[in-house]
Simulated assay, not measured.
Amino acid sequence: MEEIFAEEFKAAESFFNRKKQHIPALSVLRGHYPGRVFVDWPDKPELAIVWPTGRWMYAAGDAGAERNIALIRLFLQNTVIPDCIRRGVGWFEIYADDSEAWNRLFLSGLPGVRADKLFETVYELQIGPFRSLEELLQADQGEFEIEIVEYPIVAGSDILSLGADHHFMDKKTVGASVNVGGQTVSFCRNNGFTVGNEYFIDADTYETAERNKGHGTQAAAALIGYYLDQNMLPLWETTQDNLASNRLALKLGFLPAEQYPVYTFKLQK
């Protein structure tokens, strides 16, 4: 696989411009988020991998051809695994289509790596149900504060470690935090994967003791409302087995839109 750079990214767009799940890859290709891009042939690629900085990878194209199988295996062994070792990270993930070709390629085994497969779902917001919930939440303010704050799109250490364009170090995104007693207990943010008027959400409630108190709902609703006022639509992504995240998505008014596999790889000691 050959790495290409910003002025060549257009060649890889056709692999990633048809599905919601590919918005993170497309945000790299359109210069909204830092990352690296690899293809088999720069002039007319049949295979492409987009690697957003500090995140997972997206692979698309012909995974069945023997030449491409060899190229991807070499890419994982010579580029991805050494990068993980250098950063002290013992795993990586690749998003791809659900096909026998990708299954054979990724699940047939790599030296020193254990591969597995799980499924994720991306949800789209239904604005009417969300607005109804938003009214209820605004009428039921508890002993907490909601703050709209700016976050770096990526950590400076990720920018430096992967050699990304340093102008992304100053790029910010917006999040909503729920604070109790001066401490942030839950947050929700636009994670920087934005294309057109759609963006992906990251959300977390830090302490187990603070969960199931509605803080995550309040943080997510505050962020979604903030962006709806700017005509921006959220996308919610979660694994099938993350029941809490799936329940929260449905509560907020999201409905499933796409389901797709994620191939997970753990480095063996």
Results as ranks from 00 to 15, higher is better:
R18I: 00
H22D: 15
M1T: 07
L160G: 01
V37C: 09
E124D: 09
T238Q: 06
E150H: 10
Q21Y: 07
E198T: 13
E134W: 15
W91S: 15
L243G: 01
I23W: 02
G214R: 02
L137F: 03
I148D: 06
K251D: 03
K171F: 11
I94C: 07
K251H: 12
E100F: 05
V89M: 08
N68H: 15
R189Y: 12
K117E: 04
R67H: 06
Y206A: 10
K171R: 15
N68F: 01
I49S: 00
E124A: 12
F254H: 05
M1Y: 07
I146T: 15
T79H: 04
F106G: 00
L160E: 14
S186F: 09
D140R: 14
G61S: 02
L233M: 14
N231E: 13
L255T: 13
I85C: 05
V180G: 08
A6D: 13
E7V: 06
Y95C: 10
Y227C: 09
S14G: 11
F75N: 01
K20R: 12
H167E: 12
K117D: 02
L29R: 03
A222K: 06
G192D: 07
G54N: 00
W236C: 08
F254S: 06
A101C: 03
S161G: 06
V37W: 04
P152I: 08
L136K: 15
P152E: 08
E145S: 13
V80C: 01
E46D: 12
G175H: 05
D83R: 10
L136V: 12
I148E: 05
H167D: 12
E147N: 10
I201T: 07
H32W: 05
Y260T: 07
L26H: 04
